[in-house]
C-alpha cells in the first residue's frame, strides 16, 4: 500500500469571544490509498474540525500550532498542507485532490443553480475539460452513482431531488474530479436506514473502483463496522483509541469506547439494559486536566488520571489506546 495522508501533532484552537478554545489536541494518524478510516466520537469531540483541517477549511479564527504537520502524498510529490496560505494555492487540494461530502446535501448545493451547472463548474476549475466534455463526465458520474435518467436529473435543482438522491448527486459531484482523498462528514446521518444501506454500498463500490482513501466521520459505530478498515475514536479533541475495525469494535480497550458500545441499543440483545455514559461531554472552555475523559470515566484511577495526559500504548500491533489503565505497573 502507498501512504496517502500523514497528520502529525494536529493541534487547533479557536479564538472566540469567550476565550481560546482547544478543538483538536495533538492528533496524529495516517491513511493509505484505498483505505477507509472511520473517525468516531460524540458531537463536540472535534471529528469534523480534524477532517476539515486536512484542507484547511476551518474558519479564519482557527489557530494551528507550529508543530502541526499535514502531508498529502500525491503522484507529483508530497504537499505540505500547512504551508499553503492563499485560496489559490489551496485550490489544488480543495475539490481537486481532496473532495468532501457533507451531512446535509440540501445545504451543500446552491439552491438556485442546477445540479449540472455546479458539477460542470467544478470540473472546469479543477481539470482542463471543456464545457461539453465536463457535461458528459458529469452525466456519466450521475449515472454511476445510480441516479436513473441522469441526463434529465442533470438539469434539475437540488430541491427537486429526494434526500437519498441528493446525497448520491453530492457523491457524484465529489468524485467527478477523481480525488485521491474523500472526506465524508456524516454522509448517511440524515438518511433513512434503507437509503443509508444503499449509500454505504455505493461508497464501498466506489472505493474499489477509484482506489481513493476515505476519512469517514460518523457517530454511528454500526456504520463504521460496515464500512471502515480502521477506526480512530475521538473525545474532546483527543484521539483516545485507534486500530483496525475488528480490534476496536470487538475488543475495545478505552473505557470511552467500551461505554459507547454499551450505550448502543443492539437488536440481538434486548434483555441487557442500556448503560449510558454518566454525565455530559464537558464544555471545551472547561477541558479537564490530565485524561480528558476522567470526569465521566467509571475506571478513573484518581490522581493519576486527573493530572497526567495518557500516552498512546500498544494493545496489539494494529491497536493503540491512550489510557492509564494500561500503563506499566498501573494498579488495576
Amino acid at each position: 500500500m502507498t501512504r496517502l495522508l500523514d497528520v502529525e501533532n494536529l493541534t487547533l484552537q479557536f479564538d472566540t469571544d469567550e476565550g481560546r478554545i482547544t478543538a483538536v489536541d495533538n492528533v496524529s494518524f495516517s491513511l493509505e490509498a484505498g483505505e477507509v478510516m472511520g473517525l468516531v466520537g460524540e458531537s463536540g469531540s472535534g471529528k469534523s474540525v480534524t477532517a476539515k483541517s486536512v484542507m484547511k477549511l476551518n474558519p479564519s479564527n482557527a489557530i494551528y500550532s507550529d508543530n502541526t504537520n499535514i502531508t498529502l502524498h500525491l503522484d507529483s510529490g508530497p504537499v505540505d498542507i500547512m504551508s499553503l496560505k492563499t485560496s489559490t494555492d489551496l485550490q489544488v487540494v480543495r475539490g481537486g485532490a481532496i473532495s468532501m461530502i457533507f451531512q446535509e446535501p440540501m445545504a451543500s448545493f446552491a439552491p438556485a443553480i442546477s445540479i449540472g451547472s455546479q458539477m460542470v463548474e467544478q470540473l472546469q476549475i479543477h481539470t482542463d475539460m471543456n464545457a461539453k466534455r465536463a457535461q458528459e463526465v458529469s452525466i456519466e458520474m450521475l449515472d454511476r452513482v445510480g441516479i436513473s435518467d441522469a441526463s434529465s436529473r442533470f438539469k434539475q435543482f437540488a430541491f427537486e431531488l429526494s434526500g437519498g438522491m441528493r446525497q448520491r448527486a453530492m457523491i457524484a459531484m465529489a468524485l467527478s474530479t477523481k480525488p485521491k482523498l474523500l472526506i465524508a462528514d456524516e454522509p448517511t446521518t440524515a438518511l433513512d436506514v434503507t437509503i443509508q444501506a444503499q449509500v454505504i454500498d455505493l461508497m464501498k463500490d466506489l472505493v474499489d473502483d477509484f482506489g481513493m482513501g476515505i476519512v469517514f466521520i460518523t457517530h454511528d459505530l454500526g456504520v463504521i463496522a460496515q464500512t471502515a478498515d480502521k477506526v480512530a475514536v475521538m473525545y474532546l479533541g483527543r484521539l483516545v483509541e485507534q486500530g483496525t475495525v475488528r480490534d476496536v469494535i470487538r475488543n475495545p480497550a478505552h473505557p470511552y469506547t467500551k461505554g459507547l458500545i454499551a450505550a448502543l441499543p443492539q437488536l440481538d440483545d434486548l434483555d441487557t439494559p442500556l448503560t449510558p455514559i454518566p454525565g455530559d461531554i464537558p464544555s471545551p472552555l472547561e477541558r479537564p486536566s490530565g485524561c480528558v475523559f476522567n470526569t465521566r470515566c467509571s475506571a478513573n484511577l484518581g490522581e493519576r488520571c486527573s493530572s497526567a495526559i495518557p500516552e498512546f500504548l500498544k494493545v496489539t500491533d494494529d491497536h493503540q489506546v491512550a489510557c492509564h489503565l494500561y500503563d506499566e505497573g498501573a494498579s488495576k
Binding site: 436506514v193 434503507t194 443509508q196 454505504i200 454500526g222 463496522a225 460496515q226 475488528r246 469494535i249 470487538r250
Partner: peptide, 16 residues
C-alpha cells in the same frame, strides 16, 4: 438495513 456492529457481517443485508 440496520448496520450490524459485526465487521464480518458486511453485505449480508437484504437491500431495498
Amino acid at each position: 438495513a440496520i448496520p450490524s456492529l459485526d465487521p464480518d457481517d458486511r453485505g449480508k443485508a437484504q437491500k431495498l
